[in-house]
Amino acid sequence: MTDAVPVKVDPQKTSLSLEYKLSRPLTACHWEPNSRFVFFGAEDNLIHRFDVSSRTVISLAAHDSWVRSFGSSLDGEVLYSGGYDGRLGFWPAAADKPDPIHMIDAHQGWLRAIAVSPDGKHIATCGNDLRVKLWDVAAGTLVKEFKGHKSHVYNLTFSQDGSSLVTCDHKGVVNSWTVDSNEPRQLLTVKALHGYDTTFRADIGGARCIALRSDGVQLALGGISNVTNAFAGVGETAIALVNLADGKLDRILQSKDKTKGTMWGVAHHPSGFWIGLSGGSGGGWLTFWTGDADHEFFKLKLKNDGRGMSLSHDRTQIVVAHADMHLRTYALHGAT
C-alpha cells in the first residue's frame, strides 16, 4: 500500500472512465488499498474480483447469500466480506484462486457492515441481531460483543484514533462505544434518517452509508429522509453531518431539487468536499458538497441507480455498484 497523495481533482469534471457488465444487479463494491482490484457483490451470492489492469473478473464463492459489505487489511492482502447470510469471510485478496481463510457465522440475520480499525488489528461488524462485534484479524476470533441497540444496526466506523466505534441503527440512533466499555454512549438520534409510515405500519430509515471527514472530527450518515410513502420509497436523499465531539447534528446535506431516493454511499475527499451516491425514484446521482452549505455545488447524473460506492486509495476514482448489472468507475479529474 502506498500513502495517498491526493492529486488535484475537479469534481465538476467527473466523468465515466470504465464500465464492466455482470449478469446480475450489483449490491456493493470496494476498492482495495493497492488499487489492483475492485471487489464487488451482486445478487448472486458471489464476490467478484475485478482486476483493474487486465479488466478481467474472477468470482469467489463461500457466502450463502448476497454480499453487502467489504473491508481490507491495511496492506491490502486480506479481504473481509460480510453477507446477508450473517457470515464474515477472510480472503487472500490477490491469490490466483482465493479460498476463504475464515468463514465465521458472525451474526444472526444479516451482517450489514464492516469497519477496519486504523491500526488494522481489528475489524468490527454489525447486523440484524442488534449486535456490534469486534474481531481480532490475526486470529479471526471474536474479541468483544457490544449490546445496546434496539433495532437493526445498519452501519459503523471506527473513530480516527481507533479508540471508539460509532454505530447507527435502523431508527437513526447513533451510539459511540469505547473498546473497553460495555455500555454505549448515545450521541444522538438522527431523526431525519428515520420515519414510521403510519399507513404501511413500518419503520424506514437507518444509515445506509457512513464515513468520517478526513480530519476525523465529523461523521456523515447517509440515507432517506422525509419519507411520505415507505413502500414506494418516496423520500429524499440526505446525509446527516454529526460533530463527534459533542454529538450535535451540524447539518443535513441534500440536493437543491430534493432528489428522490436513498443515499447509498458517502465519502470525504481530502481536498475538502463530500461525495454522495444515490439511487431511487430520482435516478442515480453522484453529488458533491463542500460541507459548509446544505446544498451541493455539483451533481452528476448516472446511467442508473447506485447501490454502493468506494473511493480509490489515490482519491482520483470512484467506483459504483449499479442496479443495472454494471460496475462503473468515474474519474474525478476528467476523462482518463
Partner: peptide, 17 residues
C-alpha cells in the same frame, strides 16, 4: 395483517412484517 406492498426495499420490510 398489513402491509406487504413492498415496491421498495422488499427484503427489509419483509423482515419487519
Amino acid at each position: 395483517h398489513a402491509d406487504y406492498d413492498t415496491h421498495h426495499e422488499n427484503f427489509n420490510f419483509h423482515i419487519e412484517q
